[in-house]
Design a protein around this nucleic acid. Structure first.
Length: 139
DNA sequence: GCCAACGTTGGC
DNA sequence: GCCAACGTTGGC
């Protein structure tokens, strides 16, 4: 099983909207590296949902419910979409600033490749983010 | 609003 | 095939 992180601008599609929808088509990706990551997603892989541009935070955990298929929003067959559904909302969001401060997350693609919108996350990185969410009881 | 990072395009 | 110009993303 692999773990992933996807970015969304809250003004375009927020975690809250995703919760209300109960499922989302992850389409519109037009970057080869991101597409390759979409193609590698398997059913039930966990996916962190990150708010870019505004918020700068991981808001929740989703999972893959449909593996890559041709992106209906593109005329070209080279682009793909996946479907994901919300699994749980983090008890506390984990901010980019906090991620930067965590020694376990120094190599996370979110920091190293800030423009990539779909990226793999290691098991340790995934666990570290969930632990940070649980431990920030006062914030 | 600015700027760094980086992907894409097009001239040569 | 190289590289400059340009566009986009996303943090600050």
């Amino acid at each position: 099983m692999n773990r992933w992180l996807v970015k969304s601008e809250p003004s375009a599609y927020s975690w809250q909207e995703f919760l209300e929808d109960g499922r989302a088509f992850w389409d519109g990706v037009r970057n080869y590296q991101a597409r390759n990551n979409l193609r590698a997603m398997k059913l039930a892989d966990p996916v962190l949902f990150y708010h870019s541009n505004e918020g700068h935070e991981v808001a929740g955990v989703a999972e893959v419910v449909k593996e890559a298929y041709r992106d209906p929003t593109s005329e070209s067959a080279e682009w793909v979409a996946v479907d994901i559904k919300p699994v749980r909302t983090l008890s506390n969001t984990v901010s980019l600033a906090n991620i930067r401060e965590n020694p376990r997350l120094q190599n996370i693609a979110l920091i190293r490749q800030s423009r990539l919108s779909v990226m793999p996350v290691t098991e340790d990185e995934f666990d570290a983010i969930l632990e940070m969410s649980e431990s920030q009881s006062g914030k």
